[in-house]
């Protein structure tokens, strides 16, 4: 495999559904071996993007390539596999039959018992899918995704319906495969999951990337403080040049400036502008996430990119 070929290459992708723009000019490259979290609130365009990575839908504009080729071909060859939120299962197959049927389609395929075991459902192989719990069905989807021993694994909200132990086992399996070089991309709206398991976090909001960095960088972003000031006719261009400023929010006569160095921001405001009534507050990880992905968040220009 050519190591310079990205596992996923998304270039200027726009996806519209009638008047709704679900993905709005998204570009992203994921290198082989990366574990990337696609983090954002519901409706941010995560699932739409995942669909396009798998070739289940076509972008309205832009292109998506998987290992330098067509996504559908990568799916057919088993190079990319996925655990989807929406993928249904047939209730009147047993767990084992579902895996056997899927295994019959891949060349080559891992042994049925092996994937059942790795997904932690070897003991319920003879159970009807309709009688399996939500968490067990999710493990079954995971088992199906392991059959082709994919180079790239896509997970859309993978731990939905799993109990605590289920989540722990699931992520342990994902991490051990990632350590062996499997590229993994997972969409989630759980901040903790992204923080704990991803090497890199891509924050999306309204179909756009608002932040992209390592977990540490995202944490640094959230570790900053917000400076609020009363400022008539604010010069946002000038304040954006102050080191560490990552977002500016003008609300009437109030300006909220977020950055990693609140002292520098305050010093600049007091020394170089007419801004007054300064307040400095810190925000936690959760608030940073909400701020970056919420409805009234600043446009992504100032965010970490």
């Amino acid at each position: 495999m050519n190591s310079s070929t990205p596992a996923v290459s998304i270039d200027g992708v726009v996806k519209r559904f009638g008047p709704v723009t679900a993905v709005d000019g998204l570009s992203l490259q994921i290198q082989p071996g990366e574990v990337v979290a696609f983090l954002g609130p519901n409706g941010a365009g995560k699932t739409t993007t995942v669909d396009m990575i798998l070739g289940l839908s076509q972008p309205s504009e832009g292109s998506v390539q998987i290992f330098g080729g067509d996504p559908r071909r990568a799916v057919a060859l088993g190079r990319v596999a996925a655990v989807m939120q929406t993928g249904g299962l047939l209730k009147d197959f047993t767990v084992r039959e579902t895996v056997e049927l899927t295994a019959s389609l891949f060349r080559p395929s891992r042994p049925v018992d092996e994937v059942l075991d790795r997904a932690g459902i070897l003991d319920i192989g003879d159970r009807m899918v309709g009688k399996a719990s939500g968490g067990q069905q999710q493990r079954l989807r995971f088992a199906l995704a392991l059959l082709s021993d994919p180079d790239l694994l896509i997970l859309d909200e993978p731990t939905t319906g799993m109990d605590v132990q289920g989540r722990r086992d699931f992520w342990a399996a994902i991490r051990s495969d990632a350590a062996r070089g499997r590229t993994t991309v997972f969409a989630t709206h759980y901040l903790e999951e992204a923080d704990a398991y991803a090497d890199r976090i891509v924050l999306v909001r309204k179909g756009k990337i608002v932040a992209d960095g390592t977990a540490a960088e995202i944490k640094a972003l959230s570790a900053g403080r917000t400076v609020r000031a009363t400022w008539h006719a604010p010069d946002t261009d000038a304040i954006a040049k102050v080191e560490g400023v990552d977002s500016i929010d003008v609300r009437g006569e109030s300006v909220l400036i977020h950055g990693s160095d609140s002292d520098a921001i305050a010093r600049y405001l007091l020394n170089h502008t007419t801004a007054c009534d300064l307040e400095i507050t810190s925000r936690n990880l959760e608030e940073a996430f909400v701020a970056l992905t919420g409805d009234d968040a600043l446009t992504p220009e100032g965010a970490l990119a």
């Binding site: 088993g78 993928g87 249904g88 299962l89 047939l90 209730k91 891949f106 199906l144 995704a145």
Partner: peptide
Amino acid sequence: TERALGWSRQLRLTPL
């Protein structure tokens, strides 16, 4: 039935 249950979507993740 298989479309209503989303099984055909699951099969779209295979070479079938």
